[in-house]
Design a protein around this nucleic acid. Sequence first.
DNA 1: CACCATGTTCCTTG
DNA 2: CCAAGGAACATGGT
Length: 284
Amino acid sequence: MPELPEVEVLVRHLAPLLKNKTIRAVNVRRAKVLLPTSPHQLRRALTGAKFTGVSRRGKFLLFTLRQPQRRESLLLLGHLGMTGRIYLQPANAALPKHAAVVLNLGRQDFIYEDQRYFGRLTLATANLARLGPEPLAAEFTVERFSQALKRSVQPIKVKLLDQSLVAGVGNIYASEALFRAGISPRRSARRLKPEQVRRLWRAVRRVLAEAIACGSTIPLNHGAAVGRDRLFYFGRAANAVDYYAERLRVYDRDGEPCVRCGAAIKRITQAARSTFYCPHCQRQ
DNA sequence: CACCATGTTCCTTG
DNA sequence: CCAAGGAACATGGT
């Protein structure tokens, strides 16, 4: 499910639901997702702790908690990997097949599930330090972006996925931003002209902000039975949420006409991942 | 059987 | 130290 916009929408959804909820019990069903934290460490840290806030950094979810008898707040880090999901459900409901961690909050369970187990729910926060600037914050300046691009000979599409360049852009929005900026995904990062760097910088911000705005309008609190599998699914498979998929101009549109010029959208492989672009609108 | 999938880390090489 | 490339992780859909 997750690139920055989807994580942001999830954070906004979860924050009011979790605020002031106390964790009564911690059930670790897949220890791998905690690493390097151990199940014992997690249980000891979280049992009895109360959620005080939920925020985001790049694609990471940041849960802050207050432990009983302690002054310092505790930081729990979440990352959804490719297929992770977090939601609340009634405490007596059946657990999903790939539930990795379940936090009992009383009448509700906080479910962290991940079909492929690429994600994390951990007390280890070291990886945050490697992240680049937040694209929607003032720290993400065109100068800083430009300087970082000059040090790379990688194709710009591949470089956009580097979380130390800018935090939160993933495979979908990298293609979308390049389309909006009219830049070829194959172009070497250091060879972008200043005008292109500026256009791309703006396109990254715009594409992410629009996706957040769109995601924020989708009602997220539909019941688990209806919404769980649809929430944040944004491929274009049969059960995709059209409302969301329609917003993507090039991603997964191989062979379809470009919305701007009508040329057929192309799919190529870069760094073992799919890139979609318009060969006419994105020639340089 | 093949290939594909919203992501990151680890290892190697230069 | 840094940049870059590739395998690995694990499960499921087509």
